[in-house]
Design a protein around this nucleic acid. Structure first.
Lengths: 331, 331
DNA sequence: CTCTCGTGAGAGAGCGCTCTCTCACCTACC
DNA sequence: GGTAGGTGAGAGAGCGCTCTCTCACGAGAG
C-alpha cells in the first residue's frame, strides 16, 4: 500500500516509464493523446514524483536553506528584519520553483546539525543571515563546495559572496546630518560589536566625529528595544549635556526615545535622534523618527539573485546597496 | 570533482562497500582494525552520506515539517507562541536525530507548495500549527498517508491526532474568577473566530455568563497587541460601565491595559482584567496580569511524542492538557 | 577428524527516477 | 525507389546507498 511509482503510472497508461517521465517533466516531444493518457493515470493514482529518487539522479534538490544564526528569541522578536528577509526570499525562490528550508542555528550544536544537513545534499545552496563574530559556518559550507551567499558582509574575510548595504556610509550620513544641524555633543548607541553591521555603523559615526573635532560618546546595545532604552539612560548618566544621539537601529531608537521621554528630554528640541533601518514603526514614534533607510526587500532579492547566479556559475561579486537619509521630526 | 561516495571510502580503506556502510551506520559487527581504517578513510575524504540515496532505500528522511499557517508578520511578532513551539519542537526532535524543516503556509499558493513538498517524500511527517477556518491542509496531508499531528484542535473535525489545552475550561475558570470577585459587567475581547482557540475561549466565556445571568459584551481581536487596544476602546465606547474584561490572549490584554490607562480607568479597581496564555510579559505589565497558564513547552513536547508515536504505529489519541489560573494583580 | 555453529565480510539486488542511446516509422527530396 | 532527416517512443544504464543473502573461516562439540 505504498505510494504509486512512475512504473505504475506508465503501466496504467500503457506506455514506457521513459514516456511517463517525459510527461511529468513537461517535455513536448510526446503525442497529445499519449500525454493525456499519462496525465489521466497520474491523476487517478495520485502520483507524486519521489524527490529522493529524482535528486539522486539529477543531483539537484530544488530547495535551498535559509540559515539564521540567531537565538529564536531575537528572530521572533519585534524586529521586522527576519520576517521580511524570510518572506521575500520565499517569494523570490518560489518564482523559480525552489523551496526554502528555514533553519535556526544559534548554538554550536545546531551549527553542526546545519552543516551536516547541507553536507548531506539536502539543499542546492544556502543563504546565511545574521552572523556573529568569527562564525565558522560560512567557510565550513563553502568548503563543501555548496553555493552559499551571505546577507551582510561576513565578519571574517571569508571568500563567499554577500549582499550588504552601505553601513559605514549610512552612519556617516546620519551623523553628518546631526553635525550640520548644529549639534555639538553627539552620542551613539552602537549595535553588537560582534556583528559587522554593528561595527560598521560605529565606524561611520567615528569617522564623522573625528573629522568635525567632536568627542565620541558611545554606549553599546544588542539591537533590541530594551537595550536601546538601557543604553540611553546610561548615556544620559555619562553626559547629561548631550544634544544628539545616533542609534544604530530603529528598534533601539524606539527604546531610546522612551528613555528620553522618561528623563524629561524633549525630542528634537533638547536631544536630536537619528535611527537606522527605517522600519515601519519609525513612522509612528513620538516624534516620527529620522532614520537611514536601507531597502531590506531589495537586498534580499539581490541575495537570491546572487545565489541563483552561483548555480549557473555566474559571477560572485559582492553587492553593496546604497542607503538614504529619511528626515522626519526627531532630528 | 564531486563529493566522495561510499564506494570511494571503501576503496581507500580496502574493504567492500557493505562494510563501509556498516561502519557509517554504527553496526558493531565490524572488527576494530577494519572499523578504524574505514573511519580514517571517511575523515580523509570528508565523506558525508548522500541523503537522497539513503532515503531512497530506507524510505525515511529523518526530517519532519513544521508547518505554520500564518503570515510571516504574525509568526515573527512579539507573540512568543511560535518562537516557543519552534524551539521546543527542534530540541525534542534533535534528541531523536531528526531535522525540523520550517515551512510557512499563509497563502493558498504556499499551501499547494507545502502539500507537494510533503507528498514528494521530503519529510517523514508533519506538524501543523495555527490553522484557520476550514483549512484543507490537514486532510490533504492525511490523505497522503503521511503521519501528521496538529498543535491545537483542527477547526473541521478531521481525523488527525492533535494536542491542545483546555481552552473552554480555561476560559470558564477565568470568567468564573471575575464573577466570584463580584464583577457585574464582564466583557470579553475574543480571538479570531476562524481559529478554534478563539472560538473555544469565547465559548467558555459565554458558558459562565449564561450560568450567572450576565449579559455578554463581546469585541473581537486577532491576537495581536494592537487589536487588543482597539477592541478595548471599542468596548469602553459600547459599555462605559463595564467593570471586568476577559481577554482571549495576553498579547491583546497588554494592548487592552494600555487602552484602559489612556481612558483613565484604574486596573483592577475600576476594571479587572484576565488574560490567557501566561506569556513572560504578563509578569511585567502594570499591574501584573492575572491570566490562564497553559504550558506551551509541554504541549509542544506532547505533540512531538504523538508524531513519533505515529511513526511506530502507536495510538493516535488526542491529548488535552489542563490549564491553570495564575492570580496576579489585574483581577 | 568431521560436523555444527557463530562471526565477520563481500556480492549483488534494488530503491524510483532521469537521460542517453537506439530504433521504428514517416515524410520529403533527388 | 532509395536515402536523408526528423519525430516519437522504448530499452537500459546508473545515480549512491542499504540490506539480504551467501560464504569463508575458526572454534568447539561429538
Amino acid at each position: 500500500m505504498r505510494r504509486p511509482t512512475l512504473e505504475a503510472v506508465a503501466a496504467r497508461a500503457g506506455v514506457s516509464r521513459a514516456t511517463a517521465s517525459r510527461v511529468v517533466n513537461g517535455q513536448t516531444t510526446v503525442a497529445p493523446h499519449i500525454r493525456d493518457a499519462v496525465l489521466r493515470a497520474i491523476d487517478e493514482l495520485g502520483y507524486v514524483p519521489n524527490s529522493a529518487a529524482r535528486s539522486l539522479v539529477t543531483q539537484r534538490t530544488d530547495s535551498v536553506a535559509l540559515v539564521v544564526s540567531e537565538p529564536p528569541t531575537r528572530v521572533f522578536s519585534e524586529d521586522p528584519l527576519f520576517s521580511t528577509v524570510i518572506r521575500m526570499a520565499s517569494v523570490e525562490l518560489e518564482a523559480v520553483n525552489k523551496q526554502v528550508v528555514l533553519m535556526l542555528a544559534s548554538s554550536a550544536k545546531s551549527h553542526a546539525r546545519v552543516e551536516r544537513y547541507i553536507a548531506g545534499g539536502h539543499v542546492d545552496g544556502a543563504m546565511l543571515i545574521s552572523m556573529h563574530g568569527a562564525d565558522p559556518l560560512p567557510s565550513a559550507i563553502a568548503r563543501l563546495r555548496v553555493p552559499v551567499v551571505s546577507y551582510g558582509r561576513p565578519a571574517v574575510p571569508v571568500d563567499i559572496p554577500y549582499v550588504d548595504n552601505d553601513n559605514v556610509g549610512g552612519a556617516e550620513t546620519a551623523v553628518r546630518h546631526l553635525v550640520e544641524s548644529g549639534r555639538r555633543r553627539i552620542a551613539t548607541i552602537a549595535g553588537p560589536q560582534d556583528m559587522i553591521g554593528g561595527q560598521d555603523r560605529l565606524t561611520g559615526y567615528r569617522n564623522v566625529l573625528r573629522d568635525s573635532d567632536r568627542r565620541s560618546i558611545v554606549a553599546v546595545g544588542d539591537f533590541t528595544r530594551e537595550s536601546g532604552a538601557v543604553a540611553m539612560r546610561q548615556l544620559l548618566g555619562d553626559d547629561p549635556g548631550l544634544d544628539a544621539v545616533f542609534v544604530a537601529n530603529d528598534l533601539m531608537a524606539v527604546g531610546a526615545l522612551q528613555s528620553l521621554r522618561l528623563a524629561g528630554r524633549r525630542v528634537p528640541d533638547d536631544v536630536a535622534v537619528v535611527g537606522f533601518d527605517d522600519i515601519e514603526a519609525a513612522k509612528y514614534t513620538e516624534p516620527p523618527l529620522t532614520t537611514i533607510r536601507h531597502p531590506v526587500p531589495e537586498q534580499t532579492a539581490a541575495m537570491v539573485r546572487l545565489l541563483l547566479g552561483l548555480f549557473e556559475d555566474g559571477p560572485a561579486e559582492p553587492v553593496i546597496l546604497p542607503t538614504e537619509l529619511v528626515v522626519r521630526e526627531s532630528a
